[in-house]
Design a protein around this nucleic acid. Structure first.
Lengths: 122, 122
DNA sequence: CTGTATCCCATGCGATACTG
DNA sequence: CAGTATCGCATGGGATACAG
């Protein structure tokens, strides 16, 4: 009922494309996959998503918070503790994004074979 | 049976992450969504994915071809005609990626509301 | 029409230093 | 610990010109 068939990510000016650009992103996918398992503090998120820099983690979390996908919980402690979790809206994205992650893991052997065969032919 | 539980996109050096980086991308998503509807020639793809430049379309298609997701068919005509279509492997990705596109379209209203509310508070 | 080759600006992203 | 600020390299990606 809230679906608006006029919205089309293939249309250049459709707002939905700005949302697509944010969610169709490797860091977003990995962060949402981790948060899908439960509320996580910044430090643990940084370790779970191997190789992500603090800067990018902060920036991506801010963007996700702005889009209403992630909630931020700050505890007035020293040293500070901040936890992140998916909102109701963010949870509806967990399925689709974890499917992408699982696809990458399930088919990487075929992809590697394809790359080798492609590169061999030139 | 071809699933290898040791592969984990969250691990920095896992090859599956290189595949995730390729598929968790807005251009890849839009191209696969269009190709999911059937074999398409270059020109039509360029028009369907509004706003994509020829350079980026070519590069993305090459990468997808290299990963075994897209097949390229060249016709010896003048002017030349080249058609692209999803491979069997690429077709297994259509579901997950179109789900991402549909999510963006279905929830953009909520996302826009969240952005407005976030921006208003600062 | 389907590319390829350049040029060049914008953005992504890591590293480092610093603050509350 | 969880940021913010800054720097600078790498990549993304548009525009244009040109080739087959």
């Amino acid at each position: 009922m809230s679906y608006e068939p006029d919205w089309n990510v293939l249309t250049q000016t459709c707002p939905s494309r700005t949302s697509l650009a944010r969610i169709a992103n490797k860091w977003t996918a990995m962060i949402v996959i981790v948060l899908g398992k439960g509320r996580t503090r910044f430090r643990d998120l940084r370790h779970a998503v191997e190789g992500i820099s603090g800067k990018v983690l902060t920036e991506t979390l801010r963007d996700l918070e702005r889009d209403g996908l992630v909630a931020r919980h700050v505890f007035a402690e020293v040293p500070p503790r901040v936890e992140y979790e998916l909102t109701d809206l963010g949870r509806t994205l967990y399925g689709p994004l974890s499917a992408i992650g699982q696809w990458a893991e399930a088919h990487i052997a075929e992809v590697l074979d394809a790359r080798e065969s492609y590169d061999r032919q030139r």
